[in-house]
């Protein structure tokens, strides 16, 4: 057997009992610092039919833009012991999901600048042989204009990564897997 990376294979439809548990979609508790937000959405396929067997994972920085991870060099100063930054939700029968979290702070980029506040998203499903990755951005952020990822996207497609505010602290992020107006997916 030649050495090399283990190939991706689909998560399939039956991951629920192993990967999904109550509470994994709640990232913040009463001790967590920052603005509490809800992000809800629906996953739709190329026929705009709901995808009831998708798994969504999010990974984000805390309220001051620090990741709970040893490779973030600001650990000692900026860590929030009540926030770890990882969430996971399976979609329900109507393809819907929901996370309760906090709004992340801006994270350093590679060029010395700051990236706009964002949440990293992985999407897995039956019918996806590999993970899809994307990012959630927030509306009305000054840093959006200079964000290195948003700047790469053609203007009409950029909107797909910016959540719509539906109420105070409640945001909507629908994921369209396929079609002219499909969500922008990122190769990382």
């Amino acid at each position: 057997m030649k050495f090399g990376p283990t190939p991706w294979q689909t998560v399939g439809p039956f991951f629920g009992p192993a990967l999904v548990a109550p509470g994994l979609d709640v990232l913040a508790d009463s001790h967590t610092r920052g603005q509490r937000i809800f992000i809800e959405g629906q996953v739709l396929d190329g026929d705009r039919s709901p995808v009831p067997d998708a798994l969504i994972e999010i990974w984000q920085a805390n309220a001051v833009g620090c990741y709970d991870h040893p490779e973030d060099p600001r650990q000692d100063k900026a860590l929030d012991p009540a926030f770890h930054g990882f969430g996971r939700a399976g979609t329900d029968k109507s393809g819907c999901f929901r996370f309760a979290t906090i709004k992340p702070g801006p994270v350093p980029g590679v060029d010395g600048g700051l990236q706009a506040p964002h949440i990293n998203v992985s999407l897995f499903a039956r019918g996806l042989l590999r993970r899809l990755t994307t990012r959630i951005y927030f509306p009305y952020e000054e840093l959006n204009a200079s964000d290195p990822v948003l700047k790469l996207l053609p203007e009409p497609r950029r909107a797909s990564l910016i959540v719509k505010q539906v109420a105070k602290g409640r945001f909507r992020f629908d994921i369209l897997l396929q079609g002219d107006d499909e969500t922008v997916f990122l190769e990382i």
Binding site: Q178, L186, E187
Partner: peptide
Amino acid sequence: KRAPVHPPIRIAHTL
């Protein structure tokens, strides 16, 4: 009906 049509957009790695 589930695989995206558009190629993914390659981004540089950050934190």
